[in-house]
């Protein structure tokens, strides 16, 4: 077993790490790069808690090999806020109680941000289907959908 050296771009910064060939991007983020915002809820792509953006597309980082990050642009929840300024989605989630335990929150925020970049004015149904791969067991999704709508309106106004 030989480790692989990977050069990637992480939240806009150059980053390098070594990982085993079978190691997932999720494990690399959490154990090699010290970013524990992406969570492992299932390891099989069914819960979305490990969602990150890779070259502009959402992926379950548990279903990506660390080696595949070579040359890629990776964005995680840790890159959403700019300095002290939270992303409008992050602010809306706090202001409108869109989280309870918070374990699904990083994945949902990354997924919702990607949606609003593609579709600044989605319907509730579009949001619900877009986020269908992000399981939340606490909220019943109601306040999540409303917070995404509030953030979307805020971002359209900005």
């Amino acid at each position: 077993m030989k480790n692989i050296h990977v050069s990637t771009t992480l939240n806009g910064d150059d980053a390098e790490f070594v990982c085993a060939p079978e190691e997932t991007l999720l494990d690399a983020l959490r154990n090699r790069l010290g970013l524990s915002g992406a969570k492992e809820g299932c390891g099989t792509g069914d819960c979305g808690a490990c969602t990150v953006e890779m070259d502009g597309r959402l992926v379950c980082s548990c279903l990506v090999l660390g080696a595949e990050a070579q040359g890629a642009q990776i964005k995680t929840v840790e890159g959403m806020a700019i300095g002290e300024a939270l992303h409008p989605l992050q602010q809306a989630f706090i202001d409108h109680a869109a989280l309870q335990c918070g374990i699904c929150t990083p994945g949902i925020l990354v997924a919702a941000k990607n949606l609003l970049e593609r579709n600044p004015d989605p319907t509730d149904t579009e949001i619900r289907y877009w986020l269908a791969g992000n399981l939340c067991r606490c909220t019943g999704y109601d306040k999540i959908i409303k917070a995404v709508q509030i953030a979307a309106a805020d971002m359209r106004g900005a």
Binding site: G48, T51, R57, L58, V59, C60, N114, G133
Partner: peptide, 9 residues
């Protein structure tokens, strides 16, 4: 096939 995240891959 799968979720939005799975669709990305």
């Amino acid at each position: 096939i799968g979720s939005t995240q799975i669709q990305g891959r």
